[in-house]
Design a protein around this nucleic acid. Structure first.
Lengths: 137, 137
DNA sequence: TTTAGTGCAAATGTTTTGCATCCAG
DNA sequence: CTGGATGCAAAACATTTGCACTAAA
């Protein structure tokens, strides 16, 4: 039902299946390399075009990560959350509490902007990397 | 003094001068196109290498924007702030209040991460674009 | 049948890298 | 003098686009 006006192609089905099955955020390359997509011989450009379109319609959410790659995930599934990225091993972890819920309306008044969304990314060292660095010191 | 271990080259001086004079965040291309840099015939690769190095040493702060471009600014000058980006005209506005000041230590306890920094970007429509869209409706 | 969608290849735009040369320390 | 820094050109990288062809509606 969220696919109003789009053709229900085999490629699009496979893409959405993949997102449902993996349940995590994916880059275009990761999708391209995944067995189901690869065996269907889907073109990378098709993947990008679909990711764009599905993001535009709110089915997926696109996030630009500090490594320069865009990652996509199902919009509904994980609701609203943010990422903690380890600057050493690149591991990612999500957290759900959003520190902006409160600030948003205040900021709108202050700035005159009509705020539609945001992107919050925290950097740091995960527990494992902290230990590793302590061991090597 | 923050340039310990780096050679004080003419190029590096020009770059830092530019940041001091403009006082705002710049992309590599913007720097490359600026008169002072252009007349010095500085190579784009030199700019990138210096931006990397100066960011690594904490002189500059690098931020990856949703348009896919990295912008750099002097770390000290503007202290800690965040951006509001208009999704229509791409205009940017900063705000100083940081909604994470409080959450940070809580999050560290919760996740075991040692948080070293973060990146927060808000999207929306600026006042002008809101009016424009209202007019065209 | 008609129009969105696809595959492929080529182009784009940003950033990185190899290498010979240069210059600050 | 010598290692870091530079300029240039080429490469790498993610992403976008043109175009002829395919297939969903």
């Amino acid at each position: 039902m969220p696919l109003t006006g789009m053709k229900n192609t085999r490629q699009r089905q496979l893409l959405l299946e993949l997102f449902h099955n993996t349940g995590r955020s994916l880059t275009a390359e990761e999708i391209f390399a995944s067995p189901s997509i690869r065996s269907a011989r889907m073109a990378l450009s098709t993947i990008y075009r679909n990711l764009d379109q599905l993001s535009g319609r709110g089915v997926l959410v696109k996030t630009l990560f500090p490594d320069g790659l865009s990652r996509y995930e199902l919009a509904g599934e994980h609701a609203h959350h943010h990422y903690l990225v380890c600057t050493h091993c690149q591991k990612r972890q999500t957290f759900d509490e959003c520190p902006l819920k409160r600030m948003q309306s205040d900021l709108e008044k202050q700035t005159g902007f009509q705020i539609t969304g945001h992107n919050l990314m925290l950097y740091g060292l995960c527990r494992e990397c902290q230990q590793e660095m302590a061991a090597n010191a």
